[in-house]
Design a protein around this nucleic acid. Structure first.
Lengths: 195, 195
DNA sequence: CAAAACCATGACACAATTGGAATAGTCGGG
DNA sequence: CCCGACTATTCCAATTGTGTCATGGTTTTG
């Protein structure tokens, strides 16, 4: 996951200062990325500005330090959209934030794009489930130092169950979402926007 | 997650070649780390060897490329154990592999160590749950480009539910495991090792 | 009132990691 | 005969991680 993409997406929703972005990453955005430092945010922002992806305007705060509000340029928007709707290669670990990040910016996608993104993910994980359905241990080892085999076995067993259950839940939730989106694609155009 | 630690742990269970390690990371170890490249494995191995954490013996394969079998040295073992039983700082994202990796090597830990590792994780996540129990949206924005608000909302809603449910399941599973381990601590010493 | 926490930016630096491509050769199977 | 598995290694650019230093105002809270 590139920090760049996250930042662009957030800035597209509303222009912010570096500090705001950092706060976002610590709160709402905490599922997108672990442990982001201030310096990373500022560095990334500076870099992106030098590449013409964002610009800033100075926000004078009388008595306090000036704040810089960043917004995305047209090139930045293009680059973000290219990434967002571009090819998605599911990471090995389904828990990795790749998909979550993209889904967080679903508002910038078309429904078909979203649907096909979900399809790719779901297919991938279903294949994995099929492939690794049965817990395939590898028995043969001889650890060189003290090793509590009983403990190791029971922890691994549970880890495996946690993983499987997690993957199942993941697929189930995405499948539901996909169904919703598919339904939306078919009859959302004529649907009115609510009360 | 340092690749180094994973590699040391795996090598402690049984000596392997770089190629074997890569295969492990793609199969059994796929929950520990995404998309590991050959080059990373070999580089890491080389580095560790230069630091005296591992050594290799050449495994001559007549006609084909020699294979190098790596094993962990005493320093390597010490360093691994230091890390494994050392302080654990839960990452922001509970889905991050930090804990999984440590748990995968539970066989090298004592039961008390394992129990306290679990305690740290469980406490951390419970606090997070308490803190972010209610979905706190941030309504105020004005996206600069086309934005499907309805879609965004429904995806975010589901993402949030997936996250919460995942976290709950995580905590529940770890709590069960902890209970097992605690029970084990109390009456495992006198327990006999089986038939 | 004093300490802590929040608001705000940004340079600099080094280590470490990532992701990818390129290179080279054997062996077994279809 | 071609392809995939097996085995190893090197190089590079780009990112990340982490941390430090520097600066100084405002708000909350004990």
């Amino acid at each position: 996951m590139k920090l760049e993409h996250i930042l662009l997406g957030v800035l597209l929703e509303h222009p912010s200062t570096g500090y705001d972005l950092k706060k976002f990453l610590d709160n709402h955005g905490r599922f997108m990325r672990s442990n982001t430092q201030m310096s990373q945010v500022y560095r990334s922002l500076g870099l992106m500005e030098s590449q013409g992806l964002v610009t800033h305007t100075v926000d004078r705060r009388p008595g306090a330090q000036d704040a810089k509000t960043y917004r995305v340029t047209d090139e930045g928007t293009a680059m973000f959209l290219d990434w967002l709707t571009g090819p998605y290669t599911p990471p090995t670990r389904f828990q990795d934030p790749e998909l979550t990040v993209r889904l967080s910016f679903a508002g910038f996608m078309g429904r078909e794009e979203l649907a096909s993104l979900l399809d790719v993910e779901i297919r991938t994980r279903q294949d994995e489930i099929a492939q690794y359905r049965q817990r395939d241990r590898r028995e043969d080892w001889d650890p060189a130092i003290a090793f509590d085999e009983e403990l190791a076995e029971s922890v691994k067993e549970r880890l495996h169950r946690m993983g499987s259950a997690g993957m199942d839940a993941h697929v189930a939730a995405l499948t539901e979402l996909r169904a919703e989106v598919r339904a939306g694609v078919l009859d959302s155009a004529p649907i009115l926007k609510g009360p």
